Computed example of a mutant assay.
Amino acid sequence: MVTDGGLETDLIFNHGVDLPEFAAYPLLADGTGRALLTAYYEAYARIADRAGAGLLLEAPTWRANPDWGARLGHSADDLRRANSDAVGLLRSLASRYAAELGLRDVVVSGTVGPRGDGYRSAGSPSPDEAAAYHAAQVSAFAEAGADLVAAYTLTTPGEAIGVVRAAREHGIPVAISFTVEVDGRLPDGTGLADAVEQVDAQAAPDHYLVNCAHPEHVLAGLPGPGEGADWRTRVLGVRYNASTRSHAELDEAEDLDAGDLDRIADGHTRVASRLPGLTVVGGCCGTDASHVARLWGVG
């Protein structure tokens, strides 16, 4: 399934949109913002059409949780409304793409982000704390009719376990996506294999992804060709950063590093050779539709 690219960086650097606290969900509140989001998603629907693939529509709600919402002056009710509205928008787009492009395999995902900074680990929250923290957002997605919940850019196994528990409590499928540093390890130092195995042992999600890392950084966390690793079959998706910079370097950057398309595509080929179940492919920070089209061989 095709999924989108770096929503926030695309809007900020390529379209001049102001996104305080890197939050895209406030765009849902007015017609202009919804039109921006609609145009953004349409580019990926057209990639899916050209690639003959399904489409995974991911809600612009990575920051729509209590701590980040509070920084923007948003109440719990405001956040619940935004999370519900996001699913509603994507449902309407799915119907539109079915009618206009003939896309039938469209999945709507409610996007959960980390409680803290997705580029840093400030210590692992306990699974119980994480479950309680993320429950309201997960509940809103379930009630609005999302097909699944996907937690992106998680930096610790503990928070991942909590998100899975919240999703199971509300009866909705769940995917967990870890981010990795240049050495292929989570920001808290946990190896990717260990992270998957720790979470599976306590609260197994439906599948895993890796996001917000260049293909070469993802590759560093994967075993070499011919090396056995059953956990790799659990990783079904990747969403790459365009840049080979570290997270710390990207945090300090004032420019958009759109990366080298040839290098990204080559890295993806190598990653795909080591992930036998790879199904979902898209982008993350620094990428736009041109990157995702190249990954799918249609651009």
Score class of each variant (00 low, 15 high):
Ala242Gln: 10
Met1Glu: 03
Ala175Met: 14
Gly259Asp: 03
Glu197Met: 09
Val107Asn: 00
Gly102Val: 09
Ala94Ser: 15
Arg263Leu: 12
Gly189Trp: 03
Gly282Leu: 05
Glu143His: 07
Cys212Ala: 03
Glu252Arg: 15
Ser243Phe: 04
Ala122Leu: 13
Leu154Val: 09
Thr3Cys: 14
Val107Lys: 09
Ala45Pro: 04
Ala82Trp: 14
Val238Asp: 00
Ser121Thr: 09
Gly184Met: 09
Gly224Met: 00
Ser92Asn: 07
Gly283Ile: 12
Phe22Lys: 02
Ser273Arg: 13
Ala43Arg: 15
Val298Ala: 06
Ser121Asp: 15
Leu7Phe: 03
Ala70Asp: 08
Thr244Ser: 12
Gly162Lys: 02
Gly123Leu: 03
His291Gln: 12
Leu27Lys: 10
Tyr133Met: 02
Gly145Thr: 13
Ala130Val: 09
Glu197Asn: 05
Pro173Gln: 06
Val163Thr: 04
His291Lys: 11
Asp78Gln: 10
Asn83Val: 04
Gly110Phe: 10
His291Val: 15
Thr287Ile: 09
Asp49Gly: 10
Val210His: 04
Asp262Ser: 14
Asp77Gly: 09
Leu27Glu: 07
Ala70Arg: 15
Asp67Arg: 15
Ser92Tyr: 00
Tyr152Cys: 06
Leu56Tyr: 09
Ala166Gly: 10
Val210Lys: 08
Val112Leu: 13
Glu8Gly: 13
Ala23Ser: 14
Glu197Pro: 06
Pro205Gly: 02
Leu186Ala: 01
Glu8Val: 15
Thr153Ile: 08
His268Leu: 04
Asp147Val: 07
Ala23Thr: 08
Asp4Asn: 11
Asp260Arg: 12
Ala82Val: 06
Phe178Ala: 02
Ala136His: 13
Asp251Pro: 00
Pro187Phe: 01
Val210Gly: 03
His170Ala: 02
Pro223Lys: 05
Leu295Tyr: 12
Gly158Asn: 07
Gly102Gln: 06
Ala242His: 03
Arg34Ala: 10
Gly221Glu: 08
Ala146Lys: 11
Gly283Ser: 09
Ile47Met: 03
Ala24Leu: 10
Val182Ile: 08
Pro125Thr: 01
Ala150Tyr: 00
Thr179Cys: 11
Glu129Cys: 00
Arg50Asn: 03
Asp194Pro: 08
Arg115Asn: 01
Leu295Val: 08
Glu216Val: 02
Thr32Ile: 01
Val235Ser: 01
